[in-house]
C-alpha cells in the first residue's frame, strides 16, 4: 500500500503547512493591530486567555520564534484558538464548532449535488457532440464566468424580494427551537434552498465543461471504438467505457479545485447571512476579530483537506492503476 503511505505523508505535510502558515501570517504582517485591540480590552481579558492570544499572535517578543512555535502547537493540540473579540468572551473554538456543521451541510451538500449533476450533464453534452447539445456550451460558459456572490444577489432579488418565495437571509426560522423535529428540519431546508441553489448554479458550469471536454477526449480512445466494435449497447459504451474513464481526471480535478470552489461558496454564506464558517469569517474580518479570522481559516483548510482525503479514496476505488503497489 505504497499509495496510501504516500498520500498520508502528503496530507500530514499539508496539515502541518496550513498550521505553520497560520502561525506565520500575523507575525509577518506589518503593524500590530492585536496589541491595540488588547489595549482596548484591558482588564476584561483574564490572564489565561491573554496568554493564549499572546502566543497565537506572537506578542511574546521575549521568547524565541522556535519557542513561540512550540507553544503555538501546544495550544492548538489542546483545541485552544483564543478568545473572539467580537463575541467576547466566547472561545473561538466554540464559535467555529457551531458554525462548521452549517457550512458542511450547505456547501458540502450543494457541492456534491453540483459535481454529480454537472458531471452527468457534461457526459450527455460531450456524447452528443456536433448536435443541438453544443448550443448549451455558450450558456454554460457564461455561467462559469459569473462571480458566485453576484448570482446570489440576483437570486435574492428574483426569488425573495420580487417573488417572495424564499427568505433572503438566515438559516432557519428564529422562532423555532433547534431540535430534530420535522418542523425545524423543514425550516432548515426551506432557508437553505436558495443559497444551495445559487451554489449549485454557479459551480455546476465548471464541472459540466470539464467533464464534457474529458469525455470528448476519451471518446476517441481506441477502447471506446473497440466497445462499439463489440456491438455493445450505446448506453453501455457511453457509461462503462467513455464516462467511466473520463471521470478519473474529473475526480482528481475535484480534489484539486475544492479549495477554490469552497472559497467561492463561502462567499455565498456572506451574501445570504448564513451562519456557517464563511459568514463567521466575514464578520471577523469586518470587526477585525483576528483570533476568529485565524481560527476560521484553519478550520476551512482542515475541512478542505478532509474532503481531499475522501476524494482520494474515491479515486483509488475508481482507478485500478492508482491502487497498484509500487
Amino acid at each position: 500500500m505504497r499509495f496510501a503511505v504516500r498520500r498520508t505523508i502528503f496530507y500530514l505535510i499539508t496539515a502541518w503547512a496550513a498550521v505553520t502558515i497560520n502561525f506565520l501570517i500575523p507575525r509577518l504582517m506589518p503593524g500590530d493591530p492585536v496589541t491595540a485591540l488588547m489595549g482596548r480590552m484591558q482588564g476584561r481579558i483574564d490572564s489565561n486567555a491573554e496568554e493564549s492570544i499572546r502566543v497565537l499572535f506572537g506578542l511574546d517578543t521575549g521568547a524565541s520564534v522556535w519557542q513561540q512555535y512550540v507553544d503555538y502547537w501546544g495550544l492548538l493540540l489542546r483545541g485552544d484558538l483564543g478568545l473572539s473579540f467580537t463575541f467576547f468572551p466566547t472561545p473561538v473554538s466554540e464559535i467555529v464548532q457551531q458554525a462548521l456543521p452549517w457550512t458542511i451541510g450547505l456547501v458540502g451538500v450543494a457541492t456534491i449535488i453540483s459535481f454529480t449533476l454537472g458531471t452527468g450533464i457534461g457526459v450527455a453534452i460531450g456524447w452528443r457532440r456536433g448536435t443541438w447539445a453544443d448550443a448549451l456550451l455558450p450558456i454554460t460558459t457564461f455561467f462559469s464566468a459569473v462571480p458566485y456572490f453576484w448570482l446570489g444577489l440576483i437570486a435574492i432579488t428574483v426569488f425573495s424580494v420580487t417573488l417572495g418565495w424564499f427568505p433572503s437571509s438566515g438559516s432557519y426560522d428564529r422562532g423555532l427551537v433547534p431540535t430534530w423535529s420535522w418542523e425545524f428540519v423543514g425550516s432548515v431546508i426551506y432557508y437553505g434552498f436558495l443559497p444551495a441553489l445559487t451554489v449549485v448554479l454557479s459551480s455546476i458550469a465548471g464541472w459540466i465543461l470539464g467533464m464534457r471536454n474529458m469525455l470528448v477526449t476519451v471518446s476517441s480512445e481506441d477502447y471506446v471504438t473497440v466497445a462499439h466494435a463489440k456491438g455493445l449497447p450505446e448506453r453501455r459504451v457511453m457509461v462503462g467505457y467513455a464516462a467511466r474513464n473520463a471521470i478519473l481526471p474529473q475526480v482528481s480535478n475535484f480534489a484539486l479545485s475544492l479549495g477554490f470552489v469552497v472559497g467561492g461558496t463561502l462567499i455565498m454564506e456572506m451574501v445570504f447571512s448564513y451562519q456557517g464558517i464563511g459568514y463567521t469569517l466575514f464578520q471577523a474580518v469586518n470587526t477585525q476579530d483576528y483570533p476568529l479570522m485565524q481560527g476560521c481559516f484553519l478550520v476551512i483548510t482542515l475541512a478542505v483537506l478532509g474532503a481531499n482525503i475522501i476524494a482520494d479514496f474515491v479515486y483509488a476505488a475508481l482507478d485500478p492503476r492508482a491502487r497498484q503497489e509500487g
Partner: peptide
C-alpha cells in the same frame, strides 16, 4: 458486429479499457 466481423485494433495498448 463481433458476430460477423471482429476487429483487432492497431496498438493493443489502448484497445483495452484500463478500468475493467
Amino acid at each position: 458486429r463481433w458476430q460477423d466481423t471482429a476487429i483487432v485494433f492497431q496498438g493493443a495498448m489502448n484497445s483495452l479499457n484500463p478500468v475493467y
